[in-house]
């Protein structure tokens, strides 16, 4: 089972925030979904190995050579805020850097 505090903790890990009402609704839905996931407790997997992919391919190599791909202008085309060819973001700390 999962409780409200755990849901809030997971939200923090996932960089999501919820209002109190949303957290209540999500906790109920997460309980139902995890109860569904707990059905796997019935399965005796013995020494079965976990399967993370189905291709059985491994270490696909290619030559390590530089290529012309996209221009700086193209790469910056979708950036929400930019200035002088750079991506612009707010400061890391609330009141500007160095005041922690």
């Amino acid at each position: 089972m999962i409780d409200r505090d755990q849901v809030a903790h997971v939200a923090g890990l996932a960089k999501l925030q919820f209002t109190d009402d949303q957290l209540t609704a999500f906790t109920k839905q997460m309980e139902d979904i995890i109860a569904m996931a707990d059905q796997l407790d019935e399965v005796d997997v013995g020494d079965t190995t976990p399967m993370y992919q189905v291709t059985n391919l491994s270490n696909v190599f290619r030559e390590d050579k530089p290529e012309h791909w996209q221009t700086r202008t193209q790469l910056l085309q979708n950036v929400p805020e930019k200035e002088a060819g750079l991506i612009k973001v707010p400061s890391i700390l609330d009141n500007g850097e160095g005041e922690a």
């Binding site: 997997v45 079965t48 976990p50 399967m51």
Partner: peptide, 10 residues
């Protein structure tokens, strides 16, 4: 656990 059950399903 899910990855192991996935193997059983395959």
């Amino acid at each position: 656990k899910a990855a192991k059950v996935r193997h059983l399903i395959q």
